[in-house]
Amino acid sequence: MDRNVLNLSFEVANTSAKRMQVLKFLKQHFFLDEPIVEASKLYEDEQGLKELENYTKALIDDDLSLIVSDLTSKEIAGVAVISVKYKNQTKSVQKIKSKKFERVAKFLEHLENEAKTFQRIDNLEKAISLDMLSVNPNYRGKGLAKIMIEKVINFAKEKGFKLIRIDCTSLFSTKAALNLGFESVYRIKYAEYKDDGEIVFKINENHPHQEANAMLQIINV
């Protein structure tokens, strides 16, 4: 089978079964090798992984996430977790027991705050957020991340959204977003991010993923 010629289908994860497919895929291909999960050693913390799963479920429950399947092999080639962020959104209060996950959650909140999403356009009330993007290892290096981001952009345009946000925690997602017209409005090197004076993400200097970028693209304006 030649996976260089992709025969893809796209479907929205808007049923219980499809939401479970997305979560199962992320647990297999995203949770363990995502840069901030890896660097924080969250994978060593059973409670932390459970809380990461609950955090992800809440995002998937927006019923906007995307499943990309290879019609030839019948495999899921990738998933994109998509949600809507609102200007005056009340954050759900979740009791976090895992110190490692608490630090990851605080970092993601830091990126969101520094992006200043709702200050970018006057009277902006909501925005599309691409929260997680994961590609099956069998399909990496074939431009699938770019294809999925393009799908998100087209969806946002069709629905009349004016802004899309992505928090890119890897070099690969950052490059894909930049190539599609996103702007990095905030970046921070992992070696410089501290919580209570302690470096949270310990990444070797030769590791390809050295920083996180809060990315935005204004559309329909």
Rank of each mutant, 00 (worst) to 15 (best):
186 Y>W: 09
93 V>E: 12
82 I>T: 08
25 F>P: 04
120 R>L: 09
183 E>R: 11
117 T>N: 06
16 S>G: 00
213 N>F: 11
130 L>R: 05
189 K>I: 04
121 I>D: 00
176 A>Q: 04
3 R>S: 10
99 K>G: 10
53 E>R: 10
138 N>P: 08
59 L>C: 11
143 G>T: 06
131 D>N: 12
166 I>E: 09
21 Q>F: 03
148 M>F: 08
78 G>M: 05
88 N>W: 10
188 I>K: 01
191 A>M: 05
126 K>E: 14
177 A>P: 00
89 Q>I: 02
49 L>Q: 08
195 D>A: 03
47 Q>K: 14
139 Y>H: 05
61 D>A: 14
7 N>D: 14
189 K>W: 09
170 S>F: 04
199 I>T: 13
155 F>W: 06
197 G>N: 02
110 H>V: 02
99 K>I: 13
89 Q>P: 04
9 S>Q: 11
131 D>R: 02
117 T>C: 07
58 A>I: 11
77 A>V: 12
27 K>N: 11
189 K>D: 15
55 Y>I: 03
5 V>H: 12
180 L>M: 09
38 E>M: 13
188 I>G: 02
151 K>V: 00
101 F>W: 15
46 E>I: 11
159 K>N: 14
176 A>C: 06
3 R>F: 11
39 A>I: 05
90 T>Q: 14
167 D>I: 06
80 A>W: 06
2 D>T: 02
100 K>D: 02
89 Q>D: 12
143 G>H: 12
185 V>I: 13
153 I>V: 13
169 T>E: 01
167 D>M: 01
61 D>K: 11
14 N>D: 14
42 L>K: 09
150 E>K: 14
122 D>V: 10
38 E>N: 13
22 V>E: 04
8 L>E: 04
57 K>W: 14
92 S>D: 11
19 R>S: 08
205 E>I: 12
187 R>Q: 14
161 F>E: 03
164 I>E: 09
116 K>M: 08
157 K>I: 15
76 I>L: 08
83 S>A: 13
5 V>P: 01
171 L>N: 10
207 H>G: 03
134 S>A: 14
155 F>C: 00
180 L>I: 09
180 L>Y: 02
150 E>S: 12
182 F>D: 02
58 A>C: 07
74 K>N: 15
47 Q>L: 14
100 K>Q: 08
15 T>G: 00
211 E>I: 02
128 I>Q: 10
179 N>D: 15
188 I>E: 09
20 M>P: 00
76 I>N: 13
42 L>S: 03
185 V>N: 04
99 K>R: 12
30 F>V: 01
138 N>D: 14
148 M>E: 06
193 Y>I: 04
119 Q>P: 05
